[in-house]
Design a protein around this nucleic acid. Structure first.
Length: 214
DNA sequence: GGTGTGATCGTA
DNA sequence: ACGATCACACCA
């Protein structure tokens, strides 16, 4: 399913913020049984419960104390399996994405830190009001936590029905790449499920989080 | 282009 | 104690 999701469109019709959408350009597959890199490897828990549920739903998890990441649940009800959404090419609602992606620099203790540019020179803060116009388009959705933030996906979206919406995966007619890019998965600690070449991406797309993985 | 560091907290 | 990450400083 993972490479088949490439070039599909992820949309979030938010009743307040409006429609935000992007084309899926990078994904990773995760299983349960036999996949040491998966949240579901050690069985069902409250956190990964959605992964064991019916397919076509969204599994959203919290990690590193500050980030949300979103997956498409794929296997039959009762069997863990999901595809992590790693990068989108922004299509619609870019201003909304920019406002959600405002970086808030923090130092020790979570205290707001004065933003600094190259050379340690203080620069203008991007937030809290206004739009981060210097944030490049490729920085909006090029990473699992970035895309979740840009689309406004968090705990509230965990378990959501991807057919019913408001979060949906659409086919706009563009097929997956004939020859998708493929590599080992990103960010897994050595010896922990890194043996599976289950990362898939659209070759040449600038929004892919890392064009040349190790 | 690449590497190294610290943030920050739910989960097991 | 650590993680399916990120932003930033710094180096090449």
């Amino acid at each position: 399913v993972a490479p088949e999701l490439l070039n599909k469109v992820l949309v979030h019709d938010d009743p307040v913020a409006g429609r935000v959408a992007g084309r899926i350009v990078e994904v990773e597959a995760y299983l349960g049984t036999g996949d040491a890199g998966s949240h579901a490897y050690r069985g069902r828990t409250p956190r990964n419960s959605t992964m064991f549920g019916p397919p076509g739903h969204l599994y959203v998890y919290f990690t590193y104390g500050m980030h949300w990441c979103a997956n498409v649940v794929c296997l039959e009800d009762g069997t863990a399996g999901a595809v992590l959404l790693r990068a989108l090419a922004p299509l619609e609602g870019l201003e909304t994405m920019r406002s959600r992606r405002l970086p808030v620099p923090r130092g020790p203790g979570g205290v707001l830190r004065e933003p600094r540019g190259p050379g340690g020179v203080p620069r203008e803060p991007r937030g809290p009001e206004g739009i981060a116009r210097d944030l490049k388009e490729r920085d909006l959705c090029s990473g699992p936590a970035r895309l979740a933030q840009a689309l406004g996906l968090d705990r509230r979206a965990d378990g959501a029905d991807l057919v019913a919406g408001p979060v949906r995966v659409l086919d706009d007619g563009l097929p997956p790449p004939l020859v998708p890019g493929n590599s080992l998965r990103i960010g897994l600690s050595p010896g922990r499920g890194d043996q599976h070449p289950w990362r898939w991406y659209v070759p040449g797309d600038p929004n892919v989080s890392r064009p040349t993985p190790r």
